[in-house]
Amino acid sequence: MKQQILFSFSLFLLTFSSFYYPINTASTAPASSPKLAPAPKSPSPASSKPLVPTLPDTSDSTTPDDITKILKKAKTFAILTRLLKTTEIVDNLNSQLITAKSGGLTIFAPDDSAFSNLKPGFLNSLNENKKIELLQFHILPQFVDSNNFDSLSNPVETVAGKDPLKLPFNVESLGNSVNISTGVVNATVTGVVYQDNKLAIYRLDKVLLPLDFFPSKVHASAPVAAKAPKADDHKDKSSSAEDNEDGETTQGQKKSGAVSFITIEGTRTMLVSLGVAFVAVAMI
């Protein structure tokens, strides 16, 4: 009887403890591993290539068929547009863009303020050929992206030609700055007017003046080559020295000969005089 009572009491305690104190299964479950926070992305290194700032959109989305339309839309290239039309260069440029399957063109466009900084009357002093050369000097026969100026090799060839003594065109890109020097002018590219896969037009703060427009500067910049001495010069100098020596010797010989002759003649005269004197004495 006592065993039955103890068994019933134990069962009661077990049921009571299970009801009021449930087993914490969460404490027995394996702890989940903490989630790792994603590593912060390292910032991409800044590009070392120069980037010319892009001006407000002045172009159409399609390939242009007239460069002057782009310049007119920019509204700051009236003088350049007039020169391109009067010299008829723009017709050739447009036809090249239409027919070219590769390559392209790069135009450095001085704005109106750049032309206004030229010496008064400078443009009017140029004949037709000089005006054409001036415009050609602002055009590269290749497409240069705004990020690829550092890929150019100096001196850069322009449509006007490639002559480091008469038409030097050197591009220097440093950081976000692109400068052009011609031996007369140092200009800066101030922005992108237009760019697609064949044509790039960049605005300049100065007009690029070719060095051959100023002959005095061309001669000053040209290296002076030392003249090699001619072989005949040594011969002439040695010959003249020999001639001088021979002349002095001959003159000396003539002088000494003259002295000898005078001495001999004087001796003969003295003998003749003595002979005449002896004859006279004998006759007396």
Rank of each mutant, 00 (worst) to 15 (best):
K2R: 06
S8C: 12
F9S: 10
S10G: 03
L13N: 07
L14F: 01
Y20A: 04
P22F: 07
T25F: 12
T28H: 11
A29M: 12
P30E: 11
A37V: 12
K41T: 15
S42T: 15
P43W: 09
P45Y: 08
S47D: 08
P56R: 01
S59K: 09
I70N: 03
K72F: 09
K75F: 06
T76I: 01
T76G: 00
L80S: 13
D91H: 11
K101F: 05
K101C: 05
G103R: 01
G103Q: 02
F108G: 01
D111R: 03
S113E: 13
G121K: 09
N127Q: 14
E128A: 10
K131E: 11
I132K: 13
L134E: 03
L135P: 02
H138K: 02
H138F: 00
E157Y: 00
A160L: 05
G161L: 04
G161A: 05
D163C: 11
P168E: 05
F169Q: 03
N170D: 03
V171P: 05
V171S: 05
E172A: 13
S173N: 04
L174S: 15
N179C: 01
V189C: 08
V192D: 00
Y194I: 10
Q195H: 04
L199I: 10
D205M: 13
V207K: 02
P215Y: 07
A222R: 08
V224C: 04
P229H: 13
K237H: 10
S238W: 06
E242W: 13
E245R: 15
Q251W: 03
Q251C: 04
G252E: 09
G257A: 15
G266C: 12
M270V: 08
L271F: 11
V276R: 12
M283P: 00
